[in-house]
Amino acid sequence: MANFVLIPGGGSGPQYWSLLADELRGRGHGALAVELPYEDEKAGLEEYADAVAQAVGDQRDLVVVAHSFGGFTGPLVCDRVPVELLVFVTGMIPRPGERPGDWWENTGHASALRESHLREGRDPDAQDVYDLFLHDVPRTLADAALADGRDQADTSMNAPWPAPTLPDVPTRALICTDDRYFPADFMRTMVQDRLGSAPDEMPGSHHPMLSHPTELADYLERAYMTSSGSSSDRRRRSGT
């Protein structure tokens, strides 16, 4: 069984992982929804990764699941604890030296989002959080997740991503075909460009852990089982 380390997106608390965490625990896995120090003005990406490593402790068989802005933290965790699999879930995939605040411009997100809105007949300037991020999530769940939000300091946005490369661990990227904030076509291009492979796909909005927790748990289990053999082979070859 795996221990799933659930890293929240920008300005978010662990509450929105609760349905997925319960689903994973019900299948015999461990599930740790991490609290990041988003409100701490002294904390940047390195401190976020340190907080995750401290929360993990000596747990093993780790699957790091990084949601949205958590994609800038997830890979750094892999340099601090032994990770079997890294999964970006509707995640921002960084490049070495890239400031998180520049990611949107570097990837062409604004134009892709506007084109997607116009193509689907939505107001391209609309900023309603429910419509943009949570349109397929029951309102009570959406409100509970939003109520657990954090005021994120700018520190993590302004420093270059500190790793020289993405970690040498099995890595998957999952995108959601109904995501209105990170449209599917945009994400397919971004993932191919930054990982060199096509993403996996499932239905859902930007928060599939709230709208499709069972399907997301199914996916994560399959991804772990697929990667576990290659991880074991890699450890045997390295003598660890």
Rank of each mutant, 00 (worst) to 15 (best):
98 E>L: 08
98 E>G: 06
99 R>C: 07
99 R>F: 05
99 R>N: 03
101 G>M: 07
102 D>Y: 07
104 W>V: 14
106 N>A: 15
107 T>D: 01
107 T>I: 04
107 T>E: 02
109 H>I: 05
111 S>Q: 15
114 R>Y: 03
115 E>S: 12
116 S>T: 12
116 S>D: 14
117 H>R: 13
118 L>Y: 07
119 R>N: 11
120 E>Q: 14
121 G>W: 09
122 R>N: 06
122 R>Q: 09
122 R>Y: 07
123 D>R: 02
123 D>G: 10
123 D>T: 11
124 P>L: 13
124 P>H: 12
124 P>N: 06
125 D>W: 14
127 Q>Y: 11
128 D>K: 11
128 D>P: 12
128 D>R: 10
129 V>Q: 09
131 D>W: 10
131 D>I: 11
131 D>K: 10
133 F>K: 00
133 F>Y: 08
135 H>E: 04
135 H>L: 09
135 H>V: 07
136 D>L: 13
136 D>Y: 10
137 V>W: 00
140 T>A: 15
141 L>T: 01
141 L>G: 03
143 D>K: 13
144 A>D: 01
146 L>Y: 00
148 D>I: 12
148 D>T: 05
149 G>K: 06
149 G>H: 06
150 R>M: 07
150 R>A: 08
151 D>H: 14
152 Q>H: 10
152 Q>V: 12
153 A>Q: 05
154 D>Y: 09
155 T>N: 04
155 T>F: 01
156 S>K: 01
157 M>L: 15
157 M>W: 12
158 N>P: 14
161 W>K: 06
163 A>P: 10
163 A>L: 08
164 P>G: 10
166 L>K: 07
167 P>H: 05
168 D>T: 08
169 V>Y: 10
171 T>W: 01
172 R>C: 13
173 A>K: 00
173 A>L: 02
173 A>D: 01
175 I>F: 01
175 I>L: 08
175 I>E: 00
176 C>H: 01
176 C>Y: 00
179 D>C: 07
181 Y>M: 14
